[in-house]
């Protein structure tokens, strides 16, 4: 474990807590893409299948359990409890356009042609594009609530911090995983224009609004 990975995990945890807080406080999931949340649940489900077969640490296990539980709880809130506030008209990104190509790529490009390894690879590739329905929804509505932009900033920062973690591990531990690094860079690049808007607008107290 290194400081970048710990900060990254905390940023990821913060993002999830911000989202849950926003929905619980406002009793609404307006502006949130349910499709992105479904994709995240798929990411965690396919990545943490070794949850019971390989024990790394208490921290690792509890974080995995929390990520899986919170992702399904978020879906429950969006599609059941606060269903009336779910904006399905603007959440129109076709998930199959992401899942199918990513599924094919995971079969073709992976470290080992084994079920667990292919599912892990699928999860890594899927996570890198899972935010697209959410960014698409923000661009369609043309704006996002401030708390939603904080959620997106924390979420985007987590994988950016993981990139620093991979640099650190490369130089100090000699570990390197090309698949995780490439997917992590793609994932972070997708947030770039949002990061720009967040830093130039939200941090100046303005509302996040995309140029129409």
């Amino acid at each position: 474990m290194n400081v970048f990975r710990l900060l990254g995990d905390m940023s990821h945890l913060l993002a999830i807590l911000i989202l849950l807080l926003k929905m619980w406080k406002t009793r609404s999931c307006a502006g949130i893409s349910g499709k992105t949340q479904i994709l995240f649940a798929l990411v965690f489900t396919t990545r943490y299948l070794d949850l019971f077969s390989s024990f790394i640490s208490i921290y690792n296990t509890t974080m995995k359990l929390f990520f899986i539980a919170s992702s399904y709880f978020t879906i429950f809130l969006m599609y059941s409890k606060f269903k009336a506030t779910y904006d399905s008209n603007h959440d129109s990104f076709r998930m199959e356009f992401l899942v199918v190509p990513v599924g094919g790529l995971a079969f073709l490009v992976n470290h080992e042609f084994l079920p667990l390894e292919i599912l892990w690879t699928f999860s890594i590739y899927l996570e890198s594009v899972a935010i697209l329905p959410q960014l698409f929804m923000v661009s369609k509505t043309g704006e996002a609530e401030t708390i939603t932009s904080h959620y997106l900033f924390a979420l985007g920062s987590y994988r950016l911090l993981y990139i620093f973690n991979w640099v650190y591990r490369y130089y100090f531990d000699g570990f390197f995983d090309l698949i995780a690094v490439v997917a992590g860079c793609v994932q972070t690049i997708l947030y770039c224009d949002f990061f720009y808007l967040y830093i130039t607008k939200v941090l100046k107290g303005k509302k996040l609004s995309l140029p129409a």
């Binding site: 990975r5 995990d9 990821h12 990545r47 070794d50 390989s54 790394i56 690792n60 974080m63 995995k64 990520f67 470290h111 080992e112 390894e117 892990w120 993981y162 973690n165 570990f175 995983d177 995780a180």
Partner: peptide, 10 residues
């Protein structure tokens, strides 16, 4: 590579 066998990152 030992790391690939044990995925220790979240």
């Amino acid at each position: 590579k030992p790391w690939l066998d044990k995925k220790d990152e979240l």
